[in-house]
Structures are given as C-alpha cells and as structure tokens.
C-alpha cells in the first residue's frame, strides 16, 4: 500500500510539467471565454431583455436577430461548431489548430450565447416595479440598466456566470480535437490513449476541485451582494 502510494506520487511528479501546461492551456481558453461572456454576452443578454415585447426598447427585429443567434450557437453540437469554425478562425487568426488561442474562438462564441441567455433570465426575474420606478424618475435607458436592473439582479448575474463558467470547462475539454490542449486533452492522451489510468483520474480530480472552488466562490459572492 505504502509502495503503491509512493509510486503514484512519483508518477504525478513525473507528469507534473505536462499537467501544469495543460492547466495553463485551459486557463487561456477559459480566460478568453470569460472575457467574451462579460464584454459581449452581458450586453447581448441585456439587449434580449430590453427589446422583447412590452419592454422599454421593444424592437422585434433586433430581438429576433439576437434570439436567433443565441439559439443557433446553443443548438449547434459543440464539436461540430468547433469544426465548422475552422475556416473562419484560419482567416482571422492565421491558424486554426494547434494552439489554445485558436481554440478559444468557438469557446468565446458559446460563452457569449450561453451567458446572454443567463443574463436575460436574470433580468426577467427583476420585479416589474423596478422598471416602472426608473421610468417614473425619468431615467435614461443606460441609467435603467446600470442603476436599476443590474443592481437588483446582481446576485443572479453572478450565479449565472458561475454556472456558465462550469459549462465552459466542460466545453474546453473537447478542444484537444483541434490541438487546443487543455486539461481534458491531457486526460484523454494519457489516460485513454496510453492506459495511464491513474494520471487520467488525477486530471479529472483536478477538474472537479476547480469546479468546486469556483462554484463555492460564486455562491459566496452572490450571497454577499444580495441584500434582498
């Protein structure tokens, strides 16, 4: 038993540089996905909310267009989205395979669509009276969003972001297919293709720990800012 543990530790140390590198690659993909979710997903979700029927900026064309985009991206099987985007990534970034930045493009697209949906849901949960109050005070649209809607939905926005983050990790494990690397790719290469099961489980446990920490942090933050 003691020998087995010692042998396992030695193997983990041996694989540590490769494991660390794949974590770094995952980090790059996650970073791009999160930035895209905040910079583009948040405004898109807000637009979905504002332009819907009966809302302050009702506009059927913008609403349908945004809605269509989100539905298309989300209904695309992710692996096929990755493959289908190859020519586009090559045109924009120069290469489509073999590095985590190239692999981040489909991650960003799914992140925008997924988080936009969460944001829309969060805003729909804000009581009608909040919008009415903003309107009665003569708030501009920007003020309505910043000073009323986001304030009242902030904990729900954070929980949505946490949920989206966990999904991004799951999506990122596919990116080995196009040479994007990452922790999922690491698990497949060593565990599945080379039968080094212990290393695969180690990778999976690392993923689970990351997810747990993020989930815990997200809920804690959401609770802290929730004064309702």
């Amino acid at each position: 038993m003691v020998d087995a543990v010692r042998e396992y530790i030695v193997r983990v140390i041996e694989f540590w540089p490769a494991l660390f590198e794949s974590l770094w690659e995952t980090g790059i993909m996650m970073g791009f996905a999160m930035i895209a979710a905040i910079l583009l997903g948040l405004p898109l979700g807000t637009l979905l909310y504002l332009t819907a029927k009966g809302k302050p900026m009702e506009n059927i064309y913008i609403y349908q267009l945004s809605n269509f985009f989100v539905n298309i991206v989300r209904s695309f099987p992710f692996l096929l989205l990755v493959v289908a985007m190859q020519p586009f990534i090559r045109a924009v970034y120069g290469r489509a395979t073999g590095d985590p930045v190239a692999a981040s493009f489909p991650m960003m697209l799914i992140a925008i669509a997924l988080y936009a949906r969460f944001v829309q849901q969060s805003l729909l949960d804000v009581p009608r009276g909040v919008t009415e109050t903003a309107h009665s005070m003569g708030a501009s649209r920007l003020q309505l969003v910043w000073k009323f809607l986001f304030v009242e939905s902030r904990s729900s926005l954070i929980i949505g972001f946490t949920t989206a983050f966990v999904s991004f990790i799951s999506y990122s494990t596919i990116m080995g297919v196009v040479g994007g690397g990452g922790i999922g790719d690491f698990a497949i290469r060593y565990g599945y293709q080379r039968y080094e099961t212990d290393i695969m489980y180690t990778a999976i446990i690392v993923i689970i720990i990351i997810v747990q920490i993020i989930q815990w942090l997200g809920l804690k933050l959401a609770k802290k800012v929730d004064k309702r």
Binding site: E132, S136, M137, K227
Partner: peptide, 29 residues
C-alpha cells in the same frame, strides 16, 4: 418626469440598495 414624484402600492424600493442609496437615487439621475 424629473419634476414629478411618485409613490407606489408596493413601495418599489431597490432591495439591494440601502435606505440612503434609495433616497439618493433620483439625484443620481
């Protein structure tokens, strides 16, 4: 609208803002 105040049956306060922040809200707009 700036010159007209309104109060509501369900009060319509922002629950994530303190009393002070709620009262100051019109002055921020």
């Amino acid at each position: 609208q700036k010159g007209i105040g309104m109060i509501f049956q369900q009060f319509n306060l922002l629950n994530n803002k303190s009393v002070r922040e709620n009262i100051q809200l019109p002055l921020e707009l």
